[in-house]
Computed example of a mutant assay.
Amino acid sequence: MKKSALKWLTTVPVAVALAVSLAACGGAATTGTGSPTDALAGSDQVSLDKYTTKDVTALEKIDKAALGLIVPGTITVGTLSDAPPNIFIDKSGKFTGYDNELLRAMAEKLGLKVEFKSTDFAALLSQVANKQFDVGSSSISTTDARRKSVAFTNGYDFGYMAVVAKTDAAVKGFKDLTKDTRIAVVQGTVQDDYVTNTLKFEPVRFSDYNTAYANLKNGQVDAWVAPSQQATGQVKDGDGTAIVESVVNTQNFTAYAVNSGNKPLTDALNSALDAVVADGTWSKLTKQWYPTRVTPADWSPGSKAVTVPKG
């Protein structure tokens, strides 16, 4: 199989924190989300290969008039503004980050423009399902539960999950989390589901990454279970915090969300993804945004037909 199984919670070296300047604002946690479904249920490797397409349509055969875009010629994208290095707004006001720059490159292959609009993660998938956005871009883990409401492209990235804590805290990893630990998560994320349904703890839910991290720094929570990419974008020297454990999660690859009724757009994005993998753009952007990260040898992006160029 193109993407062979990796053990969930396989410990990897913690990535070096990126020096990204952020304005972390305070704020109150949201209330509980009821009974979210287990994000990891049914997401074994057989399922992943089932969802990864065998091949894609040739770019020149894509009918741009049939893509069902909200604005013809433009992909309207819902994304986040506060989750570097994946999805954020830079100092010039530009939506950027690994996920968004990759999507820009894919749109260029299709001869389309991209317009990004900011939203909260908890609302993003429903907004794609309701056709407020053509695409959702937010390092979205492609769980079976989420596939009930939206469609996904082939995977463009694998995931990490991290525990962030104060440097002098007793929490040094996932094994130290207990029912008495005040655990921050962003509402509606895989981390929310993991803490709630797998660990069976009640987390403190926040609407965005900035606020979750700010509440860790000020001591309102004891730990933050976060996507490792976003954790590296938040933690800075002098914060008194650290990524105490980071683990590989390839069981749910990350992909762009598309309305489940818009197969032409999903197919077109899959074609564009294979194109940017084949020409080296995916590798270039991955190195640019994740300079210290090691990609698992048995994981690769795009369809089963495309190969990441060596070198």
Score class of each variant (00 low, 15 high):
residue 260 S to T: 05
residue 233 G to K: 07
residue 214 A to E: 00
residue 246 S to Y: 01
residue 231 A to E: 00
residue 213 Y to H: 03
residue 219 G to W: 13
residue 271 S to C: 08
residue 243 I to P: 01
residue 219 G to T: 10
residue 248 V to L: 15
residue 243 I to N: 02
residue 268 A to V: 10
residue 205 R to H: 04
residue 212 A to Q: 05
residue 222 D to A: 14
residue 229 Q to F: 12
residue 207 S to Y: 06
residue 230 Q to W: 02
residue 240 G to Q: 03
residue 214 A to T: 08
residue 247 V to F: 08
residue 269 L to S: 08
residue 236 K to S: 10
residue 234 Q to I: 02
residue 215 N to F: 07
residue 249 N to L: 14
residue 225 V to A: 05
residue 230 Q to G: 11
residue 248 V to M: 10
residue 205 R to S: 13
residue 243 I to G: 03
residue 250 T to I: 13
residue 229 Q to W: 07
residue 221 V to Y: 09
residue 275 A to I: 12
residue 212 A to T: 09
residue 246 S to I: 06
residue 219 G to D: 02
residue 223 A to T: 06
residue 215 N to H: 02
residue 215 N to Q: 15
residue 250 T to W: 08
residue 262 N to M: 05
residue 208 D to L: 12
residue 207 S to N: 11
residue 228 S to N: 08
residue 258 V to Y: 08
residue 206 F to E: 04
residue 211 T to G: 03
residue 236 K to V: 07
residue 257 A to W: 11
residue 245 E to G: 14
residue 252 N to S: 10
residue 205 R to E: 10
residue 269 L to M: 12
residue 214 A to V: 04
residue 209 Y to C: 00
residue 246 S to T: 12
residue 208 D to T: 15
residue 209 Y to P: 00
residue 239 D to N: 07
residue 231 A to V: 08
residue 244 V to A: 05
residue 217 K to E: 06
residue 269 L to F: 14
residue 217 K to Y: 04
residue 204 V to A: 10
residue 220 Q to A: 15
residue 254 T to N: 13
residue 208 D to F: 06
residue 224 W to N: 01
residue 216 L to Y: 04
residue 208 D to K: 11
residue 218 N to L: 13
residue 210 N to R: 09
residue 255 A to K: 07
residue 225 V to H: 01
residue 269 L to K: 06
residue 224 W to L: 15
residue 209 Y to W: 02
residue 239 D to V: 11
residue 275 A to H: 06
residue 223 A to K: 05
residue 250 T to L: 13
residue 273 L to N: 05
residue 263 K to A: 15
residue 266 T to L: 14
residue 224 W to S: 03
residue 249 N to F: 14
residue 213 Y to R: 01
residue 233 G to H: 08
residue 243 I to T: 14
residue 241 T to N: 02
residue 271 S to Q: 03
residue 220 Q to H: 12
residue 242 A to Q: 06
residue 206 F to I: 08
residue 230 Q to T: 12
residue 238 G to E: 01
residue 271 S to R: 05
residue 249 N to D: 10
residue 255 A to Q: 05
residue 261 G to K: 15
residue 266 T to G: 02
residue 236 K to Q: 09
residue 247 V to H: 09
residue 253 F to N: 11
residue 255 A to H: 05
residue 262 N to L: 08
residue 247 V to C: 01
residue 210 N to H: 12
residue 219 G to C: 15
residue 231 A to I: 06
residue 271 S to N: 02
residue 246 S to D: 11
residue 206 F to W: 02
residue 216 L to D: 03
residue 265 L to E: 03
residue 255 A to E: 04
residue 217 K to S: 10
residue 275 A to C: 08
residue 248 V to E: 04
residue 222 D to E: 06
residue 212 A to V: 08
residue 204 V to S: 07
residue 256 Y to C: 07
residue 265 L to A: 09
residue 216 L to Q: 08
residue 262 N to G: 05
residue 239 D to Q: 04
residue 241 T to W: 00
residue 206 F to P: 01
residue 227 P to A: 14
residue 252 N to Q: 14
residue 274 D to K: 02
residue 205 R to L: 15
residue 211 T to R: 03
residue 215 N to W: 03
residue 272 A to H: 05
residue 260 S to H: 11
residue 223 A to F: 06
residue 229 Q to P: 00
residue 218 N to C: 07
residue 218 N to K: 14
